[in-house]
Design a binder for these strands. Structure first.
Lengths: 358, 358
DNA sequence: CATTTTCTGATAGACGTCTATCATTTTGAG
DNA sequence: CTCAAAATGATAGACGTCTATCAGAAAATG
């Protein structure tokens, strides 16, 4: 009941190891009947190649790079931590991962780093895309050299990268709409706040939100905050004044500090009942807000799962596999304070302990 | 920039390969100063052992068995599929997984299979526990032989297994409570239906449910269905008659067929507004009910994630690591029809295609 | 039939590690 | 200083696979 080796296969097929190997690795120059016998033997013995031994022999290792925007909010910080964690976990599988800092919101900066990657012997690159001609050109140059390029969180034109791993923003918006509809069983008024509807992801979330909202719920005109906290705070205040019966708020984007200040004001003043609040991305501050009950529900795009997926995807591509159609689609998670996942533990680097060694 | 080998470490430390190896593998008989020099070299070069090569040399492979109850509802069917998927995925990492069918709800049957595992050269076993003296004894016998024993979904006494991987039932109940509280902003009446409160998991879920329910919401006395569909259907009917304003139903356990029939009756009759329904486990039928809007929210215990976790745990234990405290805790997921994960694709066994091979 | 072409077998060295053995050097105790 | 004990070095064979090479056998060609 031990795992059969290619030697066993060759023996069972009545051919030499060399021939079995030629079949397995598609080296060609094998007569059809021999191929069939080898395949039959593989089938019959249930042989699967020991990939680790194969990689060892090939001296193959996978080099991947992640280009993560420099601190632009806590989100990318968590993402970076997740990359580090995965890097450590996969180091023993001959997968080497490097993280490159990229200036935030700066397509030329991104392009520069991409261009510098061209002669680095990488097999794959993951980036948070900012679309620009120069970026696209850099990506094309990389792909022409056989480097797989994945976009993460934010996409480029779909024909210019190998895959996109990212949140299903429509589903995210729908989920938010569903929650607020639940909260307003007998109708009511809800307020959507976006960063900017020019951003594709925000627009999609908003679209999904409207889709899923119940017919007897009034959706106020969406407010675009352009990521300025004071705009958000002001919007919440004035809306509450105009609609004291405001039932829910959906914060589509970031810029959540303004939201939090406005909400704590509402908490203190006994004038209004705090509306039900749904927002995005379970980063540290949001986690706290959820815990203390300042907000109700969080839609998360699971950055850790995204980078795990991205790595799986790159590995699969490197191994010559093709990805399933919806491989990159990240389904949004919905968290209340009761089912929050444990906070990522980024404790101090814990090397193996070598005590009592002599 | 290639990964350093133990040879490099030895050279850097100014010792022989043999000595470096003695340090790395704790063979003893090495002078303290040599140990320190080797450790320093490891540190300095950032050496990490190539585990795949090590396992190859050791001829080591991991044999794990999963004991899954024979078809007792769709849940364990999905679980079995998940095990198969993981088995295939990890086959290339020298991890061999077998699935054993176990009669459902039958502690003696379970014990029998456990006892038969004792001379099978396993390094770990995962089972859905049914507590009984004989089962406990079989587990102890296995553990005495160095086999790691994990419980899945349902636990035994905590001191009689190595780890438990399972849903945080309190959090699950709390989540349900939170959803129904959201739906009854201005108070209301909700109905909890359990299989039996004697079952530890149902009791815990119910406890969490009451914890999280808003103060102005009335929780009707819990109905115990003992998994008989007609009981559930009847309970829903009579409750609706007594409380036409029933806002929500939390189905704590299984026996969901009765629930579905009762709910579709309600849908048809225009007498009542259908209450908000929260239930457990996104299996096929529930998925359908959610899609067509017969129910509103599903709390899932992610069987696929559970078995992945279980495997990680067994591997870690096999490698002599210790598990973090909350490693086995599965946080419940909450799904609406909008953020359902894609259905597990258990398509036909798709072996590698060997076309165009000659 | 002779010759070329196609196919097959045998085998060696590598990958990074483990395990084991044996010879040699260094150390420490008396 | 002597001798045993402790520490170290050197090295070989294994694990399962890849890659390459070379010789020989079988098949196709004229």
């Amino acid at each position: 009941m031990v795992k059969p080796t290619l030697m066993d296969v060759a023996a069972a097929a009545g051919v030499s190891y060399a021939t079995a190997d030629r079949v397995l690795n598609r080296r060609g120059g094998v007569a059809e009947k021999s191929v069939l016998r080898v395949l039959a033997a593989i089938e019959q013995l249930g042989y699967t190649r020991d990939v680790t031994a194969a990689n060892l022999a090939r001296g193959r290792s996978y080099n991947y790079a992640f280009l993560i925007p420099a601190q632009a909010g806590a989100f990318f910080g968590e993402m970076r931590a997740a990359v580090k964690a995965e890097a450590k976990a996969r180091a023993s599988q001959r997968i080497n991962i490097t993280i490159e800092e990229v200036p935030a919101f700066n397509s030329d900066g991104l392009a520069e780093v991409l261009e510098s990657c061209i002669d680095r012997d990488l097999s794959g690159i993951c980036l948070v895309a900012i679309d620009s001609p120069r970026v696209r050109k850099a990506i094309q140059a990389l792909r022409a050299k056989g480097v797989f390029v994945l976009t993460l969180v934010a996409d480029t034109q779909s024909d210019s990268r190998d895959a996109y791993i990212g949140l299903d923003n429509l589903a995210a918006g729908r989920t938010a709409g569903r929650v607020l509809s639940l909260a307003s069983r007998d109708g009511g008024v809800v307020l959507p706040i976006a960063g900017s509807l020019d951003a594709a992801d925000h627009a999609l979330r908003f679209k999904g939100f409207k889709q899923a909202i119940a017919f007897d719920v009034t959706v106020l005109p969406v407010i675009e905050s352009f990521d300025r906290p004071e705009n958000v705070a002001e919007a919440v205040r004035s809306t509450l004044e105009a609609h004291p019966n405001l039932i829910g708020i959906y914060s589509i984007g970031s810029g959540q500090n303004g939201l939090f200040t406005a909400l704590s004001e509402v908490e203190k003043s006994a004038t209004y009942q705090r509306p039900v609040v749904v927002l995005h991305d379970l980063v540290g501050s949001v986690r706290t807000a959820l815990t203390i009950g300042l907000v109700d529900a969080v839609i998360d795009q699971k950055p850790d799962q995204q980078i795990a997926r991205a790595l799986d995807a790159m590995k699969a591509l490197s191994d010559g596999e093709t990805l399933p159609a919806d491989f990159g689609t990240i389904v949004p998670s919905l968290y209340f304070q009761d089912n929050m996942p444990p906070a990522p533990a980024d404790g101090p680097e814990k090397g193996p302990s070598y005590e009592q060694l002599f």
